[in-house]
Amino acid sequence: LVRYRTISKIPQITLNFVDLKGDPFLASPTSDREIIAPKIKERTHNVTEKVTQVLSLGADVLPEYKLQAPRIHRWTILHYSPFKAVWDWLILLLVIYTAVFTPYSAAFLLKETEEGPPATECGYACQPLAVVDLIVDIMFIVDILINFRTTYVNANEEVVSHPGRIAVHYFKGWFLIDMVAAIPFDLLIFGSGSEELIGLLKTARLLRLVRVARKLDRYSEYGAAVLFLLMCTFALIAHWLACIWYAIGNMEQPHMDSRIGWLHNLGDQIGKPYNSSGLGGPSIKDKYVTALYFTFSSLTSVGFGNVSPNTNSEKIFSICVMLIGSLMYASIFGNVSAIIQRLYSGTARYHTQMLRVREFIRFHQIPNPLRQRLEEYFQHAWSYTNGIDMNAVLKGFPECLQADICLHLNRSLLQHCKPFRGATKGCLRALAMKFKTTHAPPGDTLVHAGDLLTALYFISRGSIEILRGDVVVAILGKNDIFGEPLNLYARPGKSNGDVRALTYCDLHKIHR
């Protein structure tokens, strides 16, 4: 019993810090008490220290592992850092350059016999395009090294910054494609005289377009951006097909006994025919423009016929181009109408809503002055909100995010209106959640004399007048207030005048 009563005193000691020596009952000389009392004092002292730490809000209350900052290894790049964003855009520009100039170089340097010394005699450094290609190869190699040090988000939505895990993730992902696209074939085969082989191998750079397509997928929600990307894709495919079309004609031209190829026909049409040795002929500019003209006309199913396939190889390629053109029509131009419709969806919704308003007016036989006010209010409210119901949009977000959005939407009023000066951010967040926005066209009466005042109004834009009878008592403008002081009276009061809008007004109100 003594032991039980001794232990039962522990909660009292913990909360009230009572010393055991003052209790005459606990001072009985028993061996059990002498053993338990020192333990009680020690526990009391420890609990006292913990309570003191909690009340003082000291940093040592938290466990040590929670006080440590997340460790980022040296030379690790955050995937959302500004440097990584700028670097990704730079790589994107280099990939676009590669997609345009690599097929052009591979096709127009394929057994090209233009006048001038061969590239091997001039030297590697004197070729501007080769120098640019070398810079692109170096940048792609540097990009691989950067990807080995860039964080990523795993399946659990955690940012991984450990170098080993980053390397394994990159090896399992895009490393092989990036490595093949970054191989400097110019340096590996330079001086061997195989410019045709170098041009063909350099087309491996186009593998990076797969990554670019995935990154550009984030802009699919913007109709104008999608339309622009589709047109660029169409032009890029036409450019690639033009390079292939020229390569076919250029390879067949020296081996044909009869002059029936499209390059021969082009030379005869523009007065620059090929001679018996295969030299001469149109310039590279004429060849490229004509090839691009043929691919565009074939892809769009126009086909004027002034550039036509004559050999079997050219006919087979033309059939493939027609098939590609039909697929592009289905996948690209078939979506253009939907994209344009999405661009004008706001206008369509406006006309639909206006039609419903006019049908309501016609069905209920609203008189002319009231009908005009109804239409003007709808037009003004639509121009202010673009038909978007803010309350319906915010309803799907958590309250903390709703408060931040409301604070942002009402920031101008909260910053410049005098009653809100000096208020804490928590108070402003709470008030912003209570605001209701209303609009009024010129001549609209917001409050009639004798109406119950259940709200306090803040003028965000425009001006109003307060009338008693036919006498203008006051004219209020931006950041002015009218209405009933909230919670100042037990019952809502009545208006002693009319409140009429002089201009288009936007008002925020808080109800009782």
Rank of each mutant, 00 (worst) to 15 (best):
V159A: 01
P254S: 15
Y377D: 12
V95W: 01
M328N: 01
S308E: 01
T438Y: 10
F360S: 02
S277E: 12
L241Y: 01
T311A: 01
S308R: 01
A423G: 06
A155Q: 07
P441N: 05
Y124F: 15
L446G: 02
F435Q: 01
M328E: 03
F363G: 01
T347Y: 07
A247M: 10
K215C: 04
L78A: 11
R373W: 01
L428C: 08
R421W: 03
F228M: 13
G267W: 01
Y124V: 05
G223D: 14
T438P: 01
I77R: 01
P419F: 08
C400L: 07
M139F: 14
Y293W: 05
I361N: 01
I340H: 01
T150L: 02
A291V: 01
A291M: 01
T203R: 01
I361P: 01
P163G: 09
I72P: 11
Q68R: 11
G303T: 03
P117V: 06
S345Q: 13
T295K: 01
C126S: 01
M256D: 15
L110Q: 15
R429Q: 01
R349A: 14
G281H: 01
K425S: 12
I244H: 01
H439P: 01
V357Q: 03
L90D: 01
A392S: 08
T445K: 04
E158H: 10
K172L: 05
R259P: 15
L374T: 04
T347F: 01
S308D: 01
L327F: 01
G278R: 03
I244K: 01
E252Y: 04
R349P: 04
T102F: 01
L227Y: 03
F83W: 10
A119F: 05
P441T: 08
W245E: 01
A423V: 08
M322W: 01
R74P: 07
E121D: 15
K215L: 03
P419C: 12
D257I: 11
V336I: 06
A338K: 08
I141D: 03
G271E: 03
I339D: 01
Y274G: 01
L401K: 01
L446A: 02
I96T: 01
V160G: 01
H73F: 07
K285M: 13
V307C: 01
H169A: 09
